[in-house]
Simulated assay, not measured.
Amino acid sequence: MTTLGTDDEHWFDDAAGRLIRPYTVSNGRTEPTTPMELLSMVIATGCHPHGQLGPDHAQVLGLCGTVTTVAEVAARLRLPAVVTKILLSDLVDWGAVDARSPDPMANASNPAVLETILNALQRRL
């Protein structure tokens, strides 16, 4: 077994994947408090929430150092998109992350946009 990172306390098994269930990561929540789409852009604001961040929130915040999409954060975390949206919405609520709707030109049903996303996700995995 290997870990995801030296500071990460969540175990990852090369064959089995993440050993912590997604509903545990989201504390059983199924809906984010901030509406987001897969193509929504997120970036850290530089403001850190009061208190100590849990390992999942800290990892998400670290991935938001530059503008990125919800889909890319989910792919890098190897978590379902809805769980990633919940973690991101927590950070938005705490003022640590800013989320913007995707550009209207980035129509999710546009085959060129979908191909670009697929290629980016395949490079990451």
Rank of each mutant, 00 (worst) to 15 (best):
33 T>K: 06
55 P>Y: 01
75 A>G: 03
7 D>H: 01
50 H>S: 15
3 T>W: 10
73 V>G: 07
76 R>V: 14
102 P>I: 02
39 L>M: 13
60 V>K: 00
71 A>Q: 05
74 A>M: 04
82 V>D: 10
32 P>Y: 03
14 D>N: 06
98 D>K: 15
85 K>L: 02
8 D>K: 04
26 S>Q: 13
34 T>F: 08
42 V>Q: 09
25 V>M: 14
71 A>R: 05
120 A>G: 10
55 P>H: 07
24 T>A: 12
86 I>F: 09
60 V>D: 00
100 R>D: 11
115 E>Q: 11
52 Q>G: 11
72 E>T: 15
82 V>C: 05
7 D>S: 05
11 W>H: 14
71 A>G: 05
105 M>G: 01
90 D>M: 11
112 A>Y: 04
19 L>F: 06
30 T>A: 13
65 G>D: 13
26 S>R: 12
58 A>L: 11
51 G>Y: 09
6 T>L: 11
76 R>E: 10
38 L>C: 00
78 R>C: 01
118 L>H: 02
91 L>P: 01
5 G>D: 09
78 R>F: 01
2 T>C: 10
80 P>V: 09
32 P>A: 08
12 F>L: 10
76 R>Y: 02
93 D>V: 12
76 R>I: 11
97 V>M: 10
54 G>Q: 07
95 G>W: 05
53 L>C: 03
2 T>L: 14
117 I>Y: 02
98 D>S: 13
43 I>P: 02
69 T>V: 06
55 P>V: 08
43 I>Q: 15
99 A>G: 05
25 V>I: 15
67 V>E: 14
35 P>V: 09
83 V>P: 00
48 H>M: 08
114 L>T: 01
26 S>K: 14
74 A>N: 04
98 D>Q: 08
70 V>D: 08
65 G>N: 14
89 S>I: 05
110 N>R: 00
25 V>S: 14
95 G>K: 00
66 T>H: 15
118 L>C: 05
22 P>E: 13
117 I>W: 00
4 L>S: 04
85 K>A: 13
59 Q>R: 12
111 P>G: 02
38 L>H: 00
99 A>N: 12
64 C>Q: 03
14 D>P: 11
63 L>A: 07
113 V>N: 01
65 G>T: 11
43 I>L: 13
55 P>C: 09
66 T>D: 12
23 Y>E: 14
106 A>H: 04
70 V>I: 03
22 P>S: 09
123 R>W: 12
113 V>G: 00
5 G>E: 11
31 E>L: 11
56 D>M: 03
14 D>F: 06
102 P>Q: 15
95 G>F: 03
60 V>Y: 01
102 P>H: 13
105 M>E: 06
58 A>T: 00
39 L>T: 09
107 N>K: 03
34 T>G: 02
44 A>D: 06
3 T>S: 13
78 R>K: 09
96 A>N: 00
35 P>E: 14
67 V>W: 05
27 N>A: 12
